[in-house]
Structure formats: C-alpha cells, structure tokens
C-alpha cells in the first residue's frame, strides 16, 4: 500500500501531503525533512526508487516538482511510478497544462482530485475520463450552492438573522 504521498518543490517547499498510515505531526515533519533531503539531492538519470527506513519511495520529477509515494518493500515499484504519472495526467487535463502555480493556488483541488484517485493508499480509479467526469460534477454542485447563497433571498435571510 501507499503510506503517504508527498509533493515537494525543487526548493524543498511542500505542495501537498497525504498520509494513509497514522503519523503524528512531529513524525510528518521529520519524514518530509528527511526525504526531501534524500530525493532533492539525487542526480538526474538515476532510478526512480529510493530505499528508506525499510520502505521504498518511488518518485518522479515533473518540471520543478517532485512527486513521491512511499510503499512497502515488496510492492510493485513500476506500478506506483505509473500511478504518479496517471495523477499528473489527470491534473494536466483538469488545469490545462498544469504548472506548479496551479497546484499552489488551487491546492484544495489537488487534494480533492487525489481523493478520487487513491483511497486507503490503493488505486481507486484508473480511467482518466471517469475521474474528470466526477470532478466536474462536483465543481458544479459547489458552483450551484454558491449561486444559491448569493441570491437576493438568501442575502436578506442572512441580514435579518
């Protein structure tokens, strides 16, 4: 299983973290610090796997961002490497050629989309089309609720509360 997902920039700034195994706040910071040290310092053209504390971390760099997933020793590394790519493709389709700034200003979307891809540290859906459909349906629900909240009757109701 995937124990956690970590997106970290080349400068070591955290862009997303998602923990499927219980880590305390302190452990989380420690893991992030330790792993960014290991991964950011790896040169190009090396393999995408790092052995770390009895686990394996599968990572891949896309432009300025490193996508990392921590798995068990006996898990299939290449399968996870392609889950990373699958996630990037979905983000790319959603944002329209995604860049780090999209993930900074819309980090909540990145979290939300990840929840459609993984649950319990396992792959939930392998069809990009299906995920795109679900995500846009949810965007519409949020949008509709916003409009409703902005309607005259609602503003009056708020004001007279």
């Amino acid at each position: 299983m995937i124990h956690f997902v970590l997106l970290v920039s080349r400068q070591g700034k955290v862009r997303l973290t998602k923990w499927y195994s219980p880590y305390t706040q302190k452990e989380r910071s420690k893991v992030i610090r330790e792993l960014s040290g290991v991964i950011l310092n790896r040169g190009p053209k090396l393999c995408n796997f790092v052995e770390w504390r009895g686990y394996k971390v599968v990572y891949k760099r896309y432009a300025s961002l490193y996508f990392c997933m921590c798995i068990d020793q006996e898990d299939n590394e290449l399968e996870v490497l392609e889950i990373i790519h699958h996630y990037v493709e979905i983000l790319d389709r959603y944002f329209g050629s995604v860049c780090e700034l999209d993930l900074i200003f819309h980090f909540h979307k990145a979290y939300y989309i990840l929840d459609e891809l993984l649950i319990a540290g396992e792959l939930q859906e392998s069809s990009k089309k299906t995920i795109a459909r679900i995500v846009s349906a949810h965007d519409q629900v949020v949008e509709a609720a916003k409009e409703e909240a902005g309607s005259i009757s609602n503003i009056i109701a708020q004001a007279t509360k």
Binding site: E122, S127, T130
Partner: peptide, 10 residues
C-alpha cells in the same frame, strides 16, 4: 465496471 473491479481486487 473496471473501477469497481480494481478496488475489489485490492
């Protein structure tokens, strides 16, 4: 449905 099947296989 392959989405359900993938999750069920996990």
């Amino acid at each position: 449905d392959l989405g359900v099947l993938t999750s069920s296989t996990s």
